[in-house]
Each structure stands twice: as structure tokens, then as C-alpha cells.
Design a protein around this nucleic acid. Structure first.
Lengths: 142, 142
DNA sequence: CTCTCTGCAAAATTTTTGCACTGCT
DNA sequence: AGCAGTGCAAAAATTTTGCAGAGAG
């Protein structure tokens, strides 16, 4: 979660231009906990930027991913979801309502074991859990 | 990894018809360790079934997934990959050559902790590691 | 014989790309 | 002023769907 200033510096320092769209895309993602996909972000940004295009959303995300300030999630749906929280955590998705929640798990030990077993030099790890969320569980008991 | 007989019974018992295509799609997937996507499977099956269509591959996978005899992988590429090995294991992908290898890790404890923390009733868990495989690491040192 | 499955093609969806115009720096 | 970025539309890539004919039970 970077401030506007930090993001501006980071972009500039890496040779990327600072544009209102990029700041807005990042801010919009950083502000929510819903792990939105491109479409959700696009719709959120529409009011502020009626001319905003999908290309800008995707191109911004590519840059943010390259700068390592967001994570691209693949829950298995058709589209990618995005997350601006770069702390060591995992994701869990409800198979009923589709919501994606955060899950705090230290994965360093898990990753280390994986490295020893495979001989890979591991740079990244993503875990996804799937099940029924508390809200949907409650609904089932009506 | 089911035998042809086991798969046939399972299909029949669940009201699905046993067709040469379905058996071939499953066999083709079970035989390889490359975690192919639909296109790779399609190409492998072409020689035996010149008329095979993508629709049949996808529809077969949907049934196999419903019967819980395959796993659908989302490594973050554009397309899904498939795995007929249902033992408790994870996957690791090389960021250089794209290969996907298996990784034996017992994840029951990890999943149990996740359940306690989130209140979800978890039914599935998938972990992906990313890094450089031993072969590509060797190439780097030329 | 019936009803599901296959193959084909078209459609739907998501993401990428090319290009003229805009606007950071 | 120069060059990267935006917006738009078209293209690409993957997956899904509808339907007529084929084939399993």
C-alpha cells in the first residue's frame, strides 16, 4: 500500500510517467479489500475517468506487477484478480458467492521445503483455498 | 490414475456415457507428467482422433473435474492446465521454460489452520510455487 | 429406440495490440 | 519538444454454447 507520493517516485525512478490514470488505478485497487478484476476496477473508475479504457487498466497492472507493488491472482475464474497488499498472505475464495478473502499465513518455511525438494530457485509462492464462507454457511442453515 | 475399467464404471455409475473420446482424453492426461493444457491434449489426440474437437476436450475435463478424478491448475498463464494425479501434492512452475513439476507436500495442517482462521468450510487447496528450474539454472551458468 | 455425446462453427469473454492523439517531463 | 501514455477499436486467444448427426446403453 503506497501513498500517491511513493507511487509517483517509484514510477518516475523506473522511467515510467506519472499519470492521473495510473495513480487512480492504483489508489482504487489499494482502497478495496475485494480483490477486484479488471472489469470491477474499470467500472469503479468510470465516474472519475469517463474515457478510461481497459487497455489502460491492464497496462497499468503490468507495470505495477513488474514493480512488485501488486499481486495478480488466479483463483480459477475466467479473469485475473488484483491485490495491492504485498504482505505475506494467501487467499481464500467462497465457492458459493465468489468473494475472495485474505488469510495471514507465514509461508517461508513451506517455500524453503519446496526449494530443497525440487532444486528450483523459488521466487514466488501463491496458495489458494476454496470453501464456503461463514456468511454463506449461515444462509445454508435457514 | 484410474484404469480404463475403473473410469468406465465411474462414468456409467454417474450417468455419463462411456465413449472412446472420453477414455482417450483421460488416458492421455494420465499418461503424461507435463500438466498439459487443452491445446496440448488436443494435439496429442489428433493422430488417434482426427475429428476430435476442443469442445470434447473441455467437456470431458468438466466431467472429470466433477467426478473429482482430475485437478484443474491455474498457474497464471492464459490457459488452464490439467492433472490426473489426485494425490496430495502441489505444483511448481519454471519462470524461464514454463514447465510445471510436481511437489509432494502434505497440506492438511496448512488447510486446517486456514479453516480455523477464516471460519470457512474448506474443501480444496492449491499452492503454486514459481522460480527457475534446475535445468534452466544450469543453462544460466554457461 | 432413446437420449446423451460428438464435432463443427459461431459466440462469448478476457486480454493484447496497433495507431493517432494527448499530455508528462 | 520529444516520447511515453491514453483511448479506441480491432485482433488474438481461450473457453463456451447451440445444433445436427452419430453412437452408447
Amino acid at each position: 500500500m503506497l501513498t500517491g507520493k511513493e507511487l509517483s517516485s517509484l514510477l518516475r525512478d523506473n522511467g515510467y510517467k506519472v499519470t492521473p490514470q495510473r495513480l487512480a488505478v492504483y489508489e482504487s485497487l489499494a482502497k478495496t479489500k475485494t480483490h477486484p478484476n479488471a472489469e470491477m476496477l474499470f467500472k469503479t473508475l468510470q465516474p472519475k475517468f469517463p474515457a478510461m479504457s481497459f487497455a489502460t487498466v491492464y497496462k497499468s497492472m503490468e507495470i505495477f506487477d513488474r514493480l512488485n507493488i501488486i499481486t495478480i491472482l488466479n483463483t480459477g475464474e475466467d479473469s485475473y484478480r488484483y491485490d495491492a497488499d504485498m504482505s505475506d498472505h494467501q487467499h481464500i475464495q467462497c465457492t458459493k458467492c465468489g468473494r475472495v478473502d485474505d488469510l495471514m499465513v507465514d509461508s517461508r518455511d513451506f517455500t524453503h521445503k519446496a526449494e530443497l525438494e525440487t532444486g528450483y530457485r523459488i521466487s514466488e509462492q501463491k496458495s489458494y483455498f476454496y470453501g464456503v464462507c461463514p456468511k454463506c454457511l449461515a444462509k445454508e442453515h435457514n
